[in-house]
Amino acid sequence: MPEFQASNDMMSPLTLFLHADIVVKVVMLGLLAASIWTWAIIFTHSIRLKRINRATEKYEADFWAADDIDAFHTKRSNEKLPSAAILTAGMDEWRRSTRTRNIDRSGTRERLATRMNAAVAAELDRLGDRLNILATVGSVAPFVGLFGTVWGIMRSFTSIAAQNNTSLAVVAPGIAEALFATAIGLFAAIPAVIAYNRLTHGLDRLEARLSRFADRFHATLSRELEAEG
């Protein structure tokens, strides 16, 4: 029983890390740092995306219920929301294009669509910032862990050759330390891949929502343009 307990202690994560080669230790620490960074991005982006979705839904409901678009824009244009940025882009282009006496209606419609589509793209770029880190960690971490494993196994076989002893008691600890690097790599990569797919899906849904808002607002301004004619 004491020998079994000792073996369990030797196979603990801390013991495996402390007994590993310096290169494998660096790989493990790098992967742990990547995992912590990944979870920080996951939490911050998940919370922010949920908050923005709720706020955007309320903002758009209030906008379509408003009787005066100019008054609504003046009152709520400073809100840090994607819909507010789209509204500001559309109103700015509307005022610029309808300032002259002879209005180019076709050109105004094209410019309105361009400005609002650009605003949608800019907001999505801002919200998607650092998601590429999740993709990078998800694709690279397993290979980094594999490098640590290969390096550790090479060192283990070198030690075996030096000791001229191939018993399992000699081989197992070194190989376990090496394989632990791959385990950490998978621990970092799997949540990163899952979170990247989920957050990207959330951004795609938000993009569809913002595009619908921009299209409806563009249609509203187009009707207003025709009424002025």
Results as ranks from 00 to 15, higher is better:
Met1Gly: 06
Pro2His: 07
Gln5Arg: 02
Met10Cys: 00
Met10Thr: 04
Ser12Tyr: 11
Pro13Val: 13
Phe17Cys: 01
Phe17Pro: 02
Leu18Tyr: 07
Lys25Leu: 07
Met28Pro: 08
Leu31Glu: 05
Trp39Arg: 00
Thr44Leu: 13
Ser46Asn: 14
Lys50Asn: 09
Ile52Ser: 01
Thr56Asn: 14
Glu57Phe: 08
Glu57Pro: 00
Lys58Glu: 06
Asp68Leu: 09
Asp70Ala: 13
Ser77Met: 07
Asn78Gln: 12
Asn78Ile: 02
Glu79Asn: 07
Glu93Pro: 06
Thr98Ala: 04
Asp104Val: 07
Arg105His: 12
Asn117Glu: 11
Ala122Met: 07
Ala122Tyr: 02
Glu123Ile: 04
Arg126Phe: 09
Leu127Phe: 12
Asp129Ile: 12
Asn132Met: 11
Asn132Gln: 05
Ile133Arg: 05
Ser139Tyr: 11
Val144Cys: 03
Leu146Ile: 09
Val150Thr: 05
Thr158Gln: 14
Thr158His: 13
Thr158Phe: 11
Ala161His: 04
Asn165Arg: 04
Ser167Asn: 14
Leu168Arg: 10
Leu168Ala: 15
Ala172Pro: 11
Gly174Gln: 03
Glu177Thr: 11
Glu177Tyr: 08
Ile184Tyr: 07
Gly185Met: 09
Ala189Trp: 12
Leu199Lys: 08
Leu199His: 12
Asp204Met: 06
Asp204Phe: 01
Arg205Thr: 11
Arg205Ala: 14
Leu210Ser: 01
Ser211His: 09
Ala214Gln: 09
Arg223Ser: 14
Glu226Tyr: 11
